[in-house]
Structure formats: structure tokens, C-alpha cells
């Protein structure tokens, strides 16, 4: 009996050990490539080699002295901002309808809003490119921004809807009972309480506007080429550590985005 228990215990520990080992491996797999890139971005040599030698900020200087890259970053930044503003303007009212509309209407509505996000990005990109061409609208920064907004609207709607659904409906009733009109109640009570969710949604919509490739590649303007397009071209052409520095900049932006998230809804709130 005891030996059998010991054997079971041993198997159990082994199994759990293997599972935890895989988990640690996965986590390492997630972080190590970025660590390597950041290390290489400080390498003094002009070619990629490991382990890196020395320390220099030269490659970062090169990134910010590269007129094409700086222009592309500026373009992508603008797209990110436009996408975010559009998603707030269209997404927050839509979330209100999704959370409070009559049951049948709101189910259909959420499917309708989520669908463009479920369609593969390149399919949406190609479809918009074709349609634009039919009516004489060529690829441009605006076409890119509008298509991306439609693509990621679902993210904003979902984040804000789930926050709305967890808000006590008595809060708005209390505001009304205290004399607020529906608009006043929305502005003074509901909107402030939605801000964390709107902020979290904005982080994701901005990142999508800034980084998206699948939709962008078919819709971007040829004169103001956004960062992912330039980045794709550069990565294919050169392996200079400058690309690593460019990656370092992007990783820094991701960290900033994550700090914003953890301050707004908390990292474990991202999933809602």
C-alpha cells in the first residue's frame, strides 16, 4: 500500500514537474527573442553577431536620423490616433446599444460589429482596395485609417460593453432621481466610470493603427508609407543593427502601452 502511494506520488510530481517545465519554457520562448534583439541594438559592430560587444546608442541615433523611418513613424502615429478617435466616437455609443438595447437587437448588433474583426485582415484589406478602386478612391492614409477603424472597432465595443454590463444600473437611476437628465447622467456618472475601459480599448486600437500590416498593406498610401510597410521592406533588405534599434523603439512603445493598461484596468482586466 505504501509503495503504491509512493509510486503515485512520484508520478504525480513528475507529471506536474513536466508541465511546469513546459510552462517555463513557453514563457522563456515569449521573452528571449526580444531580449536578444534589444541586446544587439546596443552592439558596436555593424553586423549582427552574438554575443554582442560593447555598448553604443549609435543605432538608435541612426533610426531617428533616418528621414524615411521618422516619416513612417509619424504617419503611423497619425493613423493610430485617427483610428483610436474613430473607435471612441463610433464604439462607445455602439457599446451603449450593445449593453442596453433590447435583447434581440443587441445580439444581432454585436455579431454585426464583431464580424469585420473576425474576417482575416487581408480579406478586408483586399475587399476595401477593390471597392475603393471601383468608386475611384485609391489607397491613402485615409483609406488605411478608415479600414483599420472598421477592423478594430470590435475591440473598443467589446471592452466598453463588458464594463457597461458590470456597472450597477442603479447608478444612472440614482442620478435621474437626483435630478439629472439622461445626458447629464451619462456625462457625469456613466462616462467617468467608463473611462478606464475606453483607455484600455484605446491602447489596443492605437497599437493596431500603428502596427497593423494585413489591412495596411492593401490600403496604405504610396506617398505616406506607414511604419509596418517600411519596416517590412527594411527587414527584408538589411540586417544592420539599426533594425534591432528600431525594434527596440517599438518594444519600448509596447512597454508604455502595457503600463497604460495596468494603470487603467489592471493587467488582469485586459481579458474582459
Amino acid at each position: 500500500m505504501t509503495t503504491q502511494w509512493r509510486y503515485r506520488e512520484f508520478l504525480d510530481r513528475l507529471g506536474i514537474g513536466v508541465i511546469i517545465a513546459i510552462a517555463v519554457f513557453s514563457l522563456a520562448l515569449l521573452v528571449l527573442p526580444s531580449v536578444v534583439v534589444v541586446m544587439i541594438s546596443f552592439d558596436t559592430r555593424a553586423f549582427i553577431s552574438f554575443p554582442p560587444q560593447g555598448f553604443t546608442l549609435r543605432w538608435y541615433q541612426e533610426v531617428f536620423n533616418h528621414p524615411v523611418l521618422v516619416g513612417a513613424m509619424w504617419t503611423s502615429f497619425k493613423v493610430g490616433v485617427v483610428v483610436t478617435l474613430a473607435c471612441i466616437a463610433f464604439g462607445v455609443p455602439t457599446a451603449l446599444a450593445c449593453a442596453r438595447g433590447e435583447l434581440r437587437g443587441r445580439t444581432a448588433l454585436s455579431i454585426y460589429v464583431i464580424a469585420p474583426h473576425m474576417v482575416p485582415g487581408i480579406v478586408l484589406g483586399v475587399a476595401v482596395l477593390f471597392t475603393g478602386a471601383l468608386v475611384g478612391i485609391g489607397p491613402s492614409i485615409w483609406l488605411q485609417a478608415v479600414t483599420l477603424s472598421v477592423f478594430v472597432l470590435a475591440v473598443m465595443v467589446r471592452t466598453v460593453t463588458s464594463r457597461l454590463q458590470r456597472l450597477d444600473p442603479a447608478l444612472e437611476q440614482a442620478a435621474a432621481n437626483l435630478g439629472a437628465t439622461p445626458f447629464q447622467a451619462f456625462r457625469t456618472i456613466t462616462l467617468p466610470l467608463l473611462m478606464p475601459a475606453i483607455l484600455a480599448g484605446s491602447v489596443f486600437t492605437f497599437v493596431e493603427g500603428f502596427d497593423n500590416l494585413s489591412v495596411t498593406i492593401f490600403t496604405h498610401g504610396f506617398r505616406d508609407r506607414p511604419l509596418p510597410i517600411e519596416l517590412l521592406a527594411i527587414v527584408q533588405q538589411t540586417s544592420s543593427p539599426m533594425v534591432a534599434a528600431l525594434s527596440g523603439v517599438q518594444i519600448l512603445l509596447a512597454i508604455l502601452a502595457m503600463i497604460t493598461l495596468s494603470l487603467s484596468v489592471g493587467l488582469d482586466g485586459v481579458n474582459d
Partner: peptide, 27 residues
């Protein structure tokens, strides 16, 4: 609703979490 001469004390109290006590009472 907002012009009825009644004051409601809700089961959950429905105090506005983002306003102070003074903010709630002065709302």
C-alpha cells in the same frame, strides 16, 4: 424621473464611486 419630488435610497445605495461624499451629496 428627474423631476419627481421623491428621493430614492437604493438597495445597493448606488453611491457614485468616482465622487467623494460631498460630491455625492451635492450631486
Amino acid at each position: 424621473v428627474n423631476r419627481r419630488p421623491v428621493g430614492v435610497v437604493f438597495q445597493s445605495y448606488a453611491l457614485f464611486p468616482h465622487l467623494t461624499v460631498a460630491g455625492n451629496v451635492g450631486y
